[in-house]
């Protein structure tokens, strides 16, 4: 029975500061010999291992497989037999104008979406939160969350059917004697198009976290300030927005860490229609340059570059988060 007790008793119960919690004797994790712990925990280990095995094989092994970025890899020779070429692939990459174009597109799209996508869920959440009727609010929430669960192929197809050259909008315009335009194939409008698609698909879903933050704001603050004569808009400015600040900050930081991930399928699907010049992003660049030509090491180098920059951005983002007193995605250990 002592074995039983030791495991659950040392669960950090969040009451570490309270006297009752610290007065109770807590056996340290290392208190039991290894064999006793194995006998106690083998079932837990057996439960964890299959998932851990899959992650090892399909996440860690390919991560190590990135060494081919420093090789001249051919499938015939394998990782062990292919010759090492040092940084040759990276030199090739950095002197490739198409790579720079893809990087530029990626950064442009990220920046544009930060300005025109990011605020939408916040505004939508505030709007939804102001709906008094619970039923109506749940109904609207149910509808705006839904497109999050549609695939990109589906979303792009829907946009095409509505806004494309043969779509509903063009059809209506033509019937009224106007000249239709095709938004889906216009490289100049591509930024707007992909942002609109992202808003349609994910802005509703994005409200969830803001709605939760809004619900956590102390309602007495609103009452007190209303009694003091603050108007609706002043209350939003001085209570609502400061209340949302931590969440906004956290999501902004996460977004920074994810800056080079603009999503793959959305661009892969529309690259042909608008052309590579506007729609090529880093991921699609890797796909087209490697899988179509067999330049494995070159593609791996491009992927590794993106991965490393992403990692650096995440670390920076977390540093910034800690500076602002937020938790970030990993704790300051």
């Amino acid at each position: 029975m002592a074995v039983l007790k030791s495991r659950t008793d040392s669960e950090p119960a969040g009451d570490l500061t309270s006297p009752a919690g610290s007065a109770r004797r807590r056996p340290r994790p290392g208190a039991l010999p290894f064999r006793a712990r194995l006998r106690r925990d083998w079932q837990l280990l057996a439960m964890t291992l299959p998932a851990a095995g899959l992650v090892l094989v399909f996440h860690y092994v390919p991560t190590l497989g990135n060494v081919i970025a420093f090789q001249d890899y051919t499938p015939y020779d394998g990782v062990a037999g292919s010759p090492w070429v040092g940084l040759y692939n990276f030199q090739w990459l950095f002197s490739d104008p198409e790579f720079w174009q893809a990087l530029r597109n990626t950064v442009t799209i990220t920046t544009f979406q930060l300005v025109f996508y990011f605020p939408v869920p916040i505004a939508l959440a505030i709007l939804l939160d102001s709906v008094l009727s619970r039923k109506l609010r749940l109904f609207i929430q149910g509808i705006v969350y839904m497109p999050h669960f549609f695939s990109w192929v589906l979303v792009v197809s829907l946009f095409q059917q509505i806004l494309g050259g043969a779509g509903l909008l063009a059809q209506t315009l033509r019937q009224h004697g106007h000249e239709p335009w095709d938004i889906m194939t216009n490289p100049d409008a591509f930024l707007v198009l992909v942002t609109a698609e992202s808003v349609w698909k994910d802005a509703g879903w994005g409200t969830i976290i803001f709605l939760a933050a809004l619900a956590a704001i102390n309602q007495n603050l609103y009452e007190a300030s209303a009694v003091d004569g603050a108007s609706r808009w002043r209350r939003m400015w001085h209570i609502t927005l400061p209340g949302l600040r931590p969440v906004i900050l956290l999501l902004l930081i996460l977004r920074l860490g994810d800056a080079l991930n603009v999503g793959f399928e959305q661009f892969f699907l529309q690259r042909d229609a608008v052309g590579a010049h506007a729609a090529e992003v880093l991921d699609t660049f890797v796909y087209w340059r490697t899988l179509m030509t067999g330049a494995w090491s070159y593609g791996a180098a491009a992927g590794l570059f993106k991965g490393l920059v992403g990692l650096i951005l995440i670390v920076i983002a977390n540093k910034v988060a800690h500076r602002f007193g937020e938790q970030g995605i990993y704790k300051r250990s």
Binding site: R40, L45, T48, L64, I68, V286, G303
Partner: peptide, 27 residues
């Protein structure tokens, strides 16, 4: 159960996957 055998390394194995993706070509 935070006190179980190999809890920390196993948890870490999963959490680390948040930080990087293996990349398309090696996968």
């Amino acid at each position: 159960r935070t006190n179980s055998l190999f809890h920390r390394p196993l948890l870490f194995l999963f959490l680390l996957t948040f930080l990087f993706t293996p990349g398309m070509i090696p996968s």
